[in-house]
């Protein structure tokens, strides 16, 4: 390996790591506020990538069905429980998005227009998912929530296969081509991904550190009962967490769709790597999750170079020492708490 290859591998590692970091952060956020391991987060990534690809091809994306049906059911439930204003809202917003997409899909919207539309279609899916599958079970044990998350994952993968088919799609990069810095070729799209991830991670840090909404989420995470006592509704906190996770998942999907071919089930693998990073952080610490994600990206990239046949074995084998290490820290913490 020469310096050039090492640098190219590092670039590849950082790009994958950035995407895994975004997913890991959203998993940590959702878990700490709602105790849900958000396995379907990967599906949000692939759904948004596929939606963007079909908008680029000038088709009406099949995800509209999901948005429409989901919105309808949520609206129906709201109406049943007497919240007419909520019901109208849940009919109007998805309706408006669907109408806008059907009108605009055939036109060339430019990259920004397509991405905005994709965001509008896919981010609400995450909230719909929370409303329908998780909120009614808010007090259920973590294990039940995990199994429900599994079920939602299977459901969304099946839906994705149905509307997008088994073949893969690729989108055009936001910034095509490469630039050469100090003799090193840098892919512009890789820079876009790393830059976007850095901006989003900083924004999240500011949101959790500086704003009332972010602090309310953190309060719910550290003590749900206490948060309720000071007037924070855990349901609302869950909804905000899912909306943020949806936004991040969508952006990740759109970023990665030009770097690789996306299939209906690609999201699961990406989500799994993000999940590993979240585990490294004990599903609690944002900076650790981001660091873990970059580490996984790095191991993956260099393992692919040296022993590509064993790449996934190496990456996933990493979780065993990590779990042992986490277990040691966590049991020490628990002992301290008990004393």
């Amino acid at each position: 390996m020469n310096g050039m290859i090492a640098a190219l591998l590092a670039q590849d590692a950082l790009t994958s790591g950035a995407i895994y970091a975004l997913l890991a952060i959203s998993l940590v956020m959702v878990f700490s506020t709602t105790r849900i391991l958000l396995i379907p987060q990967g599906e949000i990534v692939s759904l948004s990538a596929l939606t963007l690809a079909s908008l680029e091809a000038g088709h009406v994306p099949g995800t509209l069905w999901l948005l429409g049906l989901g919105g309808l059911v949520v609206a129906g439930l709201q109406a049943l429980s007497g919240q007419i204003r909520g019901a109208v809202l849940w009919l109007a917003i998805p309706g408006a998005i669907i109408a806008a997409t059907r009108l605009l899909a055939a036109h060339d919207l430019g990259a920004a227009g397509r991405m905005t539309l994709t965001l509008a279609i896919c981010a609400p899916l995450s909230v719909i998912m929370y409303r329908l599958a998780f909120r009614p079970l808010a007090r259920a044990p973590t294990l039940v929530l995990l199994i429900v998350a599994m079920a939602v994952h299977v459901l969304l993968t099946g839906f994705s296969l149905m509307v997008f088919g088994p073949e893969g799609f690729r989108t055009r990069p936001l910034l095509p081509g490469t630039i050469t810095v100090a003799g090193m070729p840098l892919r512009l799209q890789a820079l876009v991904i790393i830059g976007t991830a850095a901006v989003l991670l900083t924004a999240m840090a500011l949101y959790f550190g500086r704003t009332l909404g972010g602090k309310a989420l953190r309060a719910t995470a550290s003590n749900a009962t206490g948060a309720r006592l000071v007037g924070i509704r855990p349901e609302a906190a869950g909804e905000v967490a899912f909306l943020l996770a949806g936004l991040i998942g969508c952006i990740s999907g759109m970023l990665i769709s030009s770097m690789t071919t996306i299939y209906f089930d690609t999201g699961f693998m990406i989500g799994l790597k993000g999940f590993m990073a979240a585990i490294m952080a004990g599903l609690g610490s944002y900076p650790l999750a981001a660091a873990g994600a970059v580490l996984i990206g790095g191991i993956e990239s260099y393992a692919s170079f040296y022993a590509s046949a064993f790449k996934d074995v190496i990456v996933f084998a990493l979780i065993i020492p990590v779990l042992i290490w986490r277990n040691m820290i966590d049991s020490r913490n628990r002992d301290e708490e008990e004393e």
């Binding site: 591998l9 690789t260 990406i270 692919s304 170079f305 040296y306 790449k311």
Partner: peptide, 18 residues
């Protein structure tokens, strides 16, 4: 070697080219 659902095959390509 790579898997059909891998999101990056950059390292394998570089390794083969080397």
């Amino acid at each position: 070697r790579f898997n059909s659902k891998d999101t990056s095959v950059t390292a394998q390509a570089l390794s083969a080219m080397s």
